[in-house]
Amino acid sequence: MSTLNTPGERKIVTFSLGDQMFGIDMKALIEIREWEPPTPLPSVPAYIKGVTNLRGTVVPVIGLAERLGWTPSVLHARSCILVATIGGKQAGFLVDEVADIILINEDQIQPAPEVETCEQSVIAGLVQVAPRTQEGAAAETSIMVLLLDLESLGLMRHLEMAA
């Protein structure tokens, strides 16, 4: 089980949004599903794409790129929805492509440097990762993965700040 990690180790699911590579903690992930258009909702922020049926539960689908302030994702064949649990609630996030599941050490994570943002940072930290090549060997150049703080992406929380 994923909880059997040795202390300090974390499993991270990485995915891309545009040219950026992001990661969320594997523990929060419920499933990855193919993109299908959700039912749109009235009077919600544009990044809430609507709601979808996840095995009998109504789950909101969030355009993660818009939510983070990037240009909205363009839908394509590999677009998918990462369904995660945030503070007891479930939410689906539209991402461009799921890349990998990686194991990192807590001490590899750098706190996000202070930058000017209009809202509380949703980036929990930065980590350098050597992407796997087709053969599975580590590549020469490493890339930056932005670890997301899922809690700060919770819908209620964002609303409270907007209110």
Binding site: S43, V51, V58, V59, A91, L155
Partner: peptide
């Protein structure tokens, strides 16, 4: 999983699996 939206009493899942508000 979301929050109450004024004007909507909830949602339901129709026979074909799609959601109606």
């Amino acid at each position: 999983n979301l929050y109450p939206i004024r004007g909507l009493g909830g949602a339901t899942i129709l026979g074909d699996g799609s959601i109606a508000l």
